[in-house]
């Protein structure tokens, strides 16, 4: 690590709030990443008749456990569970539901309040709120991460080309951007949603299509400024090729500005996904999503555990990202490095 980056890392660590937020976020992300092992309606491991079974990673037929029909095993079924427990044991994940499992043994009508089975209660279809939160959190973060990486790559590339070559390329590029960014994204999404059922990937592509402009301005400005710096001029006078010039001298400059924005871009990506889900134009019905839970919370105000849980989860996620973003911004602020 160059001394400059070392100093930045040092400054980032000195911002306690941002540093703790980063660790907290990483913990939450790494915990929810293997969500199937945390919340699932199939056991992690089964010992049956001297053999080991792993239902989380592989589907088994009921026949293997002495059932009557050749259908995939329902481990929550008391009959099947009884059969397995007779000749072995089952190891359940901490939350024995996945995001779509309906708890059919509710003591109260759904949505049911928190109990020792459903720690955060269930939603109006009897699905476990905590399990849905875990899966929803994972989808949101992954979506945000992918969208951020993709928008950054495209945005930086477009900004770099415009800023480096300037002139006509810049002029045309800027006008195209202005036209493109005035397309109403939401209406386009509604139209597309009426033609195809939007999936994770379709949503990603559409949001990317209309969201990649976020970083262009910053990178372009940074390139316009930096291409006349003395050390870039010196490299040019040495005969360094354009491509090397961009990658070795100009991009590191622009990356500072870009990195500052990345956490905030991610925040906005997650917010967009949540908003679309809330409106019903997002992920297909039934999938785990924070936005869909917000809308459930709104429709079931008398069941406050839904709304409060999802609010806390969203607020935590977005605040952590904003705190990280602030710490990063302070750490790489060029006015302080000079």
């Amino acid at each position: 690590m160059s001394p400059l980056n070392k100093e930045r890392w040092h400054r980032f660590k000195k911002n306690r709030r941002g540093y703790i937020s980063l660790w907290l976020f990483l913990c939450l992300f790494l915990m929810t990443l293997p969500a199937e092992f945390l919340a699932n309606d199939a056991p992690l491991m089964i010992r049956y008749d001297g053999d080991f079974y792993f239902p989380v990673v592989k589907e088994y037929s009921e026949l293997e456990f002495g059932g009557d029909f050749d259908i995939s095993a329902e481990y929550t079924d008391p009959y099947l569970a009884g059969l397995i427990n007779e000749k072995g044991w089952m190891l359940w994940p901490p939350i024995p539901f996945d995001y779509s499992t309906r708890n059919s043994n509710l003591t109260q009508p759904a949505p049911s309040p928190p109990s020792d089975v459903n720690w955060l209660g269930t939603d109006d279809q009897g699905r476990d709120v905590l399990a849905r939160l875990i899966y929803g959190f994972r989808v949101s973060v992954l979506f945000g991460l992918m969208l951020t990486i993709a928008t950054s790559i495209i945005g930086v590339a477009a900004g770099a080309v415009q800023g480096f070559y300037g002139g006509k390329i810049d002029l045309i590029g800027q006008r195209l951007l202005e036209v493109w960014s005035s397309v109403p994204t939401l209406f386009v999404l509604i139209i597309i949603a009426s033609m195809v059922t939007p999936s994770f990937w379709i949503l990603l592509v559409i949001l990317l299509l209309f969201g990649w402009m976020a970083l262009v301005g910053v990178v372009r400005a940074e390139f316009l400024r930096a291409r006349n710096l003395d050390y870039v001029m010196a490299a040019r006078a040495l005969g360094v090729a354009d491509r090397t010039l961009i990658f070795r001298h100009l991009l590191p400059n622009a990356m500072v500005a870009t990195i500052t924005f990345v956490p905030f871009v991610m925040v906005s990506a997650i917010t967009s996904l949540t908003a679309l889900d809330f409106l019903g134009f997002g992920l297909p019905p039934g999938s785990a999503s924070l936005g869909e839970m917000v809308s459930q919370g709104k429709n079931n105000l008398y069941a406050p555990w839904i709304g409060i849980s999802v609010f806390v989860a969203l607020a935590l996620l977005l605040s952590l990202l904003v705190f990280i973003g602030e710490a990063v911004r302070d750490a790489v602020d060029p006015n302080r490095t000079r």
């Binding site: 003395d230 050390y231 001029m233 010196a234 006078a237 590191p252």
Partner: peptide, 14 residues
Amino acid sequence: QIIFQDPYGSLSPR
């Protein structure tokens, strides 16, 4: 070759 005025600006800090 060329040598510039500002010795702080003419060397890439990275």
